[in-house]
Design a protein around this nucleic acid. Sequence first.
DNA 1: TCGCCTGATAGTTGCC
DNA 2: GGCAACTATCAGGCGA
Lengths: 100, 100, 100, 100
Amino acid sequence: MSQVGGISSDQLKQFIERIENLEQEKANIAEDIREVYAEAKYNGFDPKIMRSVLKIRKMDSSEREEHEYILDTYLIALGMAVEKAAPKAPSNANESEEAA
Amino acid sequence: MSQVGGISSDQLKQFIERIENLEQEKANIAEDIREVYAEAKYNGFDPKIMRSVLKIRKMDSSEREEHEYILDTYLIALGMAVEKAAPKAPSNANESEEAA
Amino acid sequence: MSQVGGISSDQLKQFIERIENLEQEKANIAEDIREVYAEAKYNGFDPKIMRSVLKIRKMDSSEREEHEYILDTYLIALGMAVEKAAPKAPSNANESEEAA
Amino acid sequence: MSQVGGISSDQLKQFIERIENLEQEKANIAEDIREVYAEAKYNGFDPKIMRSVLKIRKMDSSEREEHEYILDTYLIALGMAVEKAAPKAPSNANESEEAA
DNA sequence: TCGCCTGATAGTTGCC
DNA sequence: GGCAACTATCAGGCGA
């Protein structure tokens, strides 16, 4: 007896359980990721910056350029044409900062 | 001259500032809320419990529809409103069970 | 030479890549889940209802503690565990009642 | 009769209602913000970029520089020293990515 | 007081 | 292309 009101309850159950299993796997991996962040943090890396790095690596360069181009246009329009961060000479920009 | 890079900088500025103002108002209110909690705490009320009360009261309004929604779901799952579940091919839904 | 700017680039690279791999696995599983939904839908099941079922099953495990939590909250609110709620000034708590 | 188990239920009610009102105001403002975004979008502005602009305006410059400095350091350590504002030569920007 | 952790918010993605 | 669900990020609250 697997027919209830015209639908196959067994089949539904199969689908439900497959999804539940996959959700569980996904949750496990999310947990693993959190652990890696924690480990990295313990080793002195800033998780927040790591997320920025991952985001940059994820965006392909064309996408990144497109976004930055429009953003620059907006900032210029607002009169905020920020000289972003002196990309040429970061080495001594603020060495005295923490001396870490 | 309010056109920069093909966009209206004045108009953009207006939008940005309106949002910033609203964000500021929102932040102020959040601050007010924190103050009320602090005041309540000072008067001997446990903020954690207060949050529970708020949550419960909030649920009370949305809970009913949620419950009704779940009830409907059950009814549908029981085939009492199957037309919603399988509009295309309810008649042979189980036949394809093994075929998949 | 794995020290750049005072940090271990090798170690950082390890962390970044571990996370990227895990993220990839997670994305794959999310994709699998979407496929299961699609397959179920193809077989006549409403994804929305399936999500409800999942939600209900998930609640079933956490529901008990949630209910107990709400019950506790009510008991506390009713003063049956007041020591937690108003340890400092329970005696005159009501005097300020009208002052507000 | 406003004392229940040693706590002032009236006073509690006052606090609860004040918070609920504030929460409501906050929700209204959030709604307003959404409307401004919608209006801006209707006028041809990209909401996503607008959010970037707002974020930049929100961060004070020292904070922004700090973040970018560390980020650059990480990217350099990973051999991804992207010439941020160099749209001219993106062609080999990521070649070094795997070379490291 | 610091670090963790949960809940709120913002952003992204997939679906219609 | 808009809408809705889901995910990730962030900030505040909590406990050690």
